[in-house]
Design a protein around this nucleic acid. Sequence first.
RNA 1: GGCGACAUAGCCAAGUGGUAAGGCUCCGGUCUGCAACACCGUCACCACCAGUUCAAAUCUGGUUGUCGCCUCCA
Length: 467
Amino acid sequence: MKIYNTLSQKKEEFIPLEEGKVRMYVCGPTVYNYIHIGNARPAIIFDTLRRYLEYRGYEVNFVSNFTDVDDKIIKKANEEGVSATEISERYIKEFRTDMIALNVREATLHPKATQEIDGMVEMIEDLIKKGHAYEKNGTVYFRTRSFKNYGKLSKKKLDDLEAGIRIAVSDEKEDPMDFVLWKPKKEGEPSWPAPWSDGRPGWHIECSVMSRKYLGEQIDIHAGGEDLVFPHHENEIAQSEAANGKEFARYWMHNAFLNIDNKKMSKSEGNFFTVREICELYDPQVLRFFMLNSHYRSPLNFSKDLVESAKNSLTRILTSIGQLEHLMESGTLKREFISSDEQLLLAEAEALNTKFIDALDDDFNTADAIAAIFELVKLANTNCSAQSSSEFVKTIHERLVNLCQILGLETTKEEDLLDADIEKLIEDRQTARKNKDFAKSDQIRNLLLEKGIVLEDTREGVRWKRS
RNA sequence: GGCGACAUAGCCAAGUGGUAAGGCUCCGGUCUGCAACACCGUCACCACCAGUUCAAAUCUGGUUGUCGCCUCCA
């Protein structure tokens, strides 16, 4: 398997530190609000990557943190007049709700920054001891110049950065590019005791500490949105490698941004959707499919039309699978043994399976993998009928479902239990059709349509599905 | 100013040397009582210019355009 490594800016063969095992860390959300669809991109992408690695036989230790202490959380808490903990716990819960909707699995572990303060204090002390950090008036800074590889991920030079500096330079800092590891508390802020001051950690230190604690000093994959490359990941590298004296992460993966109507999402522009909002309009699976239908390193545009298109595409796959299930359940498949023609088609299906795997092996090309699924759908739609052998239909169905599952796309019908009422209406309609009472049959169909039930009169009988 | 991406049909999107996957939409047809689903068919001179090569969307140089990071941000 090849992975594009931001560090080398090349696709590299993926070789884990320990054979058969993958240690993976993905920077998680700062929990101060509902997540937006931009946040959903890395969540879906890297959940799918994890599923694929597992499919390929790796044991994946997947850690993703919650940043539950931060300026934005404190601000929100003060606005509402509640504690920061109340805010963070509330939105951790909401985050989980969204993840379940998107079919994103729980990480192996979701550590919270506030539960790891001891470890952070320890690492900061160690960095001071090693000359990589210093304290001024209760604040501890990382001594950027002391880490000679600073900038290796983002390909920035310290001197260039300083030339373009836009942040207010603090007199306390030895160098404008030094960043905060620990800061003293201000009035009304949560704080923890530490040798330098009662205060709280800087943003970057938490990931260094949590990934070391739960995955070890060296990890295989560290992932996140491309905006995290600088400064967050660059600073993590500096902290971790300065403290541990060895390479931190082997492969750095970054997803490109999601834009809305070709513009960057921002609250001031108002072009902003939460996952919750989109899930009210569409099946969350549509959002998942939408994200996977393009390469994770390409910028992706989001608009209602594009989601609508994704919805139609996904429906094509699900309809086909539903049709296969209908064939298998309806008892119309009389023949058991596979014909020679079917044998050839199964070989084609096998080739498409390989195409799917090859695509994902090549820097996780989900768009290409999905193309293979569509080709299999075409094969199924064209060749599976009442005349097919049951074994053939079953095999094609398994293949299709399996590929969808690797991508985390659910193919099972949500509710198989037909309301007796609906069943009755469909029967009535069939009777009306036999009697050529089309006015009545259309009336029933429209009635069902209003309830979100779409009928399809296939050769093998009437099928229905929720729109 | 520094660093880095990207530019393929109406739309989305694969494709890193051998004359363009896949999806959506439109149109024509088959199927259907009609519709939906499905199937068949039609739809690309790969931003521009120059170069390398027997051969380039694919490599090199340049031009134009779009975007991201450098500040909290997925």
